[in-house]
Design a binder for these strands. Structure first.
Lengths: 145, 145
DNA sequence: GCAACTGAAACCGTGTCGATTACGTATGTG
DNA sequence: CACATACGTAATCGACACGGTTTCAGTTGC
């Protein structure tokens, strides 16, 4: 299980919008153009941009010359927000386990779940240090790593 | 894509072995017993234990009174090793993208990949602070978080 | 009115994963 | 030695999720 691929697409789209300096409706970029750059299907892009829109990261307008644009500065969009916008994501799988009656069988799942939450938190912390702007000059990413 | 569920099973199995104090061949625990605790299928457990065995974390012996046991102390087994043993895992999906001709379309995937590697590294770092022994007294996990 | 574009739904093909079954092999017991 | 126990591996099945495509409805600008 994995919402795989949505995050990369989202990151790519945001970076592309930042590169195109799409900061307002009159510079909107059509999903077809985004799709050509990823590359993937326009519908796939729209599925992602819809989620990003709900998260308040981008705006979109229908109609001729419509498309998507950034609502925030590239420096202000960190990747952890992108990840959260795109999926609730359990990276290491879920731990829906537990055998009644066995004390260890009941406690372990909770402990494992705790470890996975810790891992998720670590991811969020790390991604919060990387912004969309950083993606455009990838040297920053290396430096931060 | 995700090797989901293997990591939770592996963590549970290791914790169970530690709980059972299976530190040598004469205290081996059968896969059926592990499977009953997870709970899952004995074969699933063996698939996981086979990988853990290749990673040198546990030993296994066939035959009557056979089973698996720990080769290292519970405190010495950190979860990042477990994760690596169980899958090569790209938690956030792969980023096999790039459109030739477009400078931004070519650079962005690398930057995104860099971000995902950073996230993976963050996970490994965090998990390396948690041992199998910690899973048994989960209070430690909370404290470390 | 027409063309361009988003948004949402439906559908399909595919890949992956867990579960199950089955077979071969190794080990201990009587 | 015969037999039960148990691992290891392969094959198969069904469920599920995801990406890709198509289609339709609604919006916007010329």
């Amino acid at each position: 299980m994995s919402d795989s691929q949505k995050f990369p697409v989202a990151a790519h789209a945001l970076a592309y919008l930042a590169h195109k300096k799409a900061f307002s409706a009159d510079r909107a970029v059509a999903s077809a153009e985004l799709a050509a750059s990823v590359p993937t299907n326009p519908v796939v892009v729209r599925r992602v941009t819809a989620m990003l829109g709900k998260a308040g990261l981008i705006g979109a307008r229908a109609g001729a010359n419509g498309g998507a644009w950034l609502l925030k500065a590239p420096e202000a969009i960190t990747l952890d927000v992108v990840l959260r916008a795109v999926n609730g994501c359990a990276h290491l799988g879920v731990a829906p386990k537990g055998v009644k009656g066995c004390p260890v069988g009941e406690k372990i799942p909770d402990a494992v779940r705790g470890a996975m939450i810790a891992a998720d938190t670590a991811v969020a912390d790390r991604l919060s240090q990387i912004s969309v702007a950083d993606l455009l000059n990838s040297a920053t990413v290396e430096a931060a790593a």
